[in-house]
Design a protein around this nucleic acid. Structure first.
Length: 464
RNA sequence: GGCGACGUGGCCAAGAGGCUAAGGCAAGGGUCUGCAAAACCCUGAUCAUGGGUUCAAAUCCCAUCGUCGCCUCCA
């Protein structure tokens, strides 16, 4: 397997610290507002990676955190006049529900900053003792000049950044690039006791502490959106490696940003579609299909048109799972052999693509080829038994990608009887060649979202 | 200003030195069908532009144009 590593900016051979085991940490959201589909994209990317690693036989310990204390949560809670912890709690629950909706496997652990305070403080203390951090008026800062490797992930040099006009000079810092490990609390803010007085952790330290706590000093994969490369991940490396003296993560994997009308979807730009809004109008599989259809490192274009294409593509995959007609005569041996061969080709192509830095688009292409093979065999008269192995493989591999392929329309079971009744009556109309009437029934049902498909076998229907 | 990514048929998009440039959507033609739908078959790109390296480039190098990201909170 090969994996692109942001640290080296190269595709590298994937080798775990411990054979057969993967320790993977992915940065989760800061819970101060409704999550948008950019968050979902990131979660989907790492879900796909995790599923594939498991398919390849790895045991994956997957940690995704929730940042449940920070300036914005506090601010938002004050605006709303609610308790900041309750606010975070609410968004965490909502997010977990969304993950389920998207068929994203639950992480092994979902740590939260507020529940790891001891470890965070211990780590900061250690950094202070080793001279990598200093305290000032109740704040504690990381001393970037002490870390000769600082900037290695993002490819920046301290000197270059120093001259950047965006950095506001804070008098209390020794160096403008120093960042907060601990922030002194202002009155009314949530605070924890620490050797430096009451305060709360900086953003970056929590991830370092949680990694240490839940995965150990060294991990295999550290993931997140590429907007986290700097400063968040850079700072995590600085903290963790300064503290342990060991290489922190072997592979840094970053997903590209979701783009809406040519711009990154973000809270600050305001061009966001919340997960809630998305799910109201689209099946969850559609977003996954979008993610699968392109490289995870590239920006992902999002629009109604592209989404509609993804939904059609899912239909296409589903077509491969349709059963053979009950009266199928059976296909010739040559057809059966060709299908068997197709199954092999598809699976090996699938693995080959995914092994190459999780090239899911390439893997999908293999599945579409398999679908065509199945449909061809069915058109050639294959029986259910003749199709079953190929269909099973199709199902298995789509599951590796996390696609459910289930029809997600609301089931109105009470409607079934009526539709079936109409179909029966229409059959008589057709038997009497009353085409106009029978077509009208079909058209009007279609307008209601019920699609009829006539075949020699009879008429079947499904929701649009 | 610094760092980085990207530009492949109408749309989404894979491919990263050499087999016929994947796949999906859309479009057109055909088979099947009473008609449709579904399915099946067939049809199209020389890879932003201009140089260069090489026996060979969409793939490497340089330049230009364009788009985007990071440098402040961000998945």
């Amino acid at each position: 397997m090969k994996v692109y590593n942001t640290l080296s900016r190269k595709v590298e051979e994937f080798q775990t610290l411990e054979p057969g085991k993967v320790k993977m940490y992915v940065c989760g959201p800061t819970v101060y507002a409704k999550a948008h589909i950019g968050h979902a994209m990131s979660a989907l990317v790492f879900d796909i990676i995790r599923r594939y690693l498991e398919y390849r036989g790895y045991e994956v310990r997957h940690v995704m955190n929730f940042t449940d204390v920070d300036d914005k949560i506090i601010l938002r809670a004050q605006e709303k006049g609610v308790d900041p912890f309750k606010l975070g709690e609410m968004y965490i629950h909502e997010f977990e529900k969304h993950l389920q909706d998207f068929n994203i496997l639950p992480a092994t652990v979902n740590p939260r900053a507020t529940r790891e305070m001891e470890q965070i403080i211990t780590m900061i203390q250690g950094l202070v003792e080793k001279g990598f951090a200093y305290d000032k008026d109740g704040d504690v800062y990381f001393r970037v000049t002490r870390d000769s490797q600082y900037g290695k992930l993002s490819g920046r040099r301290i000197d270059d950044m120093q001259s950047g006009y965006r950095i506001e000079v804070d008098e209390r810092k020794e160096h403008p690039m120093d960042f907060a490990l601990w922030k002194a609390a202002k009155p009314g803010e949530p605070a924890w006791d620490s050797p430096w007085g009451k305060g709360r952790p900086g953003w970056h330290i929590e991830c370092s502490a949680m990694n240490l706590n839940h995965l150990g000093e060294q991990i295999d994969i550290h993931g997140g959106g590429n907007d986290l490369v700097f400063p968040h991940h850079e700072n995590e490396i600085a903290q963790s490696e300064s503290y342990t003296g060991k290489t922190f993560a072997r592979y840094w994997i970053h997903n590209g940003m979701l783009q809406l009308s040519g711009e990154k979807m973000s809270k600050s730009v305001g061009n966001l579609v919340t997960i809630e809004e998305f799910l109201e109008n689209h099946p969850a599989d559609a977003l996954r299909m979008l993610v699968l259809n392109s490289g995870y490192r590239n920006p992902l274009s999002f629009s109604d048109e592209i989404l509609a294409q993804a939904e059609k593509a899912i239909e296409r995959l589903r077509s491969g799972l349709k059963p053979a007609p009950a009266a199928a005569p059976g296909a010739a041996q040559s057809v059966v052999d060709a299908l068997a061969h197709q199954v092999e080709t598809a699976e090996s192509g699938f693995v080959q693509s995914m092994d190459d830095d999780f090239n899911s688009a390439g893997a999908l292409a293999q599945l579409f080829d398999l679908v065509r093979g199945i449909n061809q065999a069915r058109a050639d008269g294959a029986t259910g038994a003749q199709l079953s192995a190929a269909q099973l493989k199709l199902r298995q591999l789509t599951t590796v990608l996390g696609l459910s392929l289930e029809k997600e329309t609301e089931t109105h079971q009470e409607v079934d009887g009526f539709v079936n009744l109409l179909i029966e009556i229409r059959r008589e109309l057709r038997a009497n060649k009353l085409w106009e009437l029978s077509d009208s029934v079909r058209d009007r049902l279609a307008a209601l979202g019920v699609v009829l498909e006539d075949s020699k076998e009879g008429t079947s229907w499904h929701w649009k």
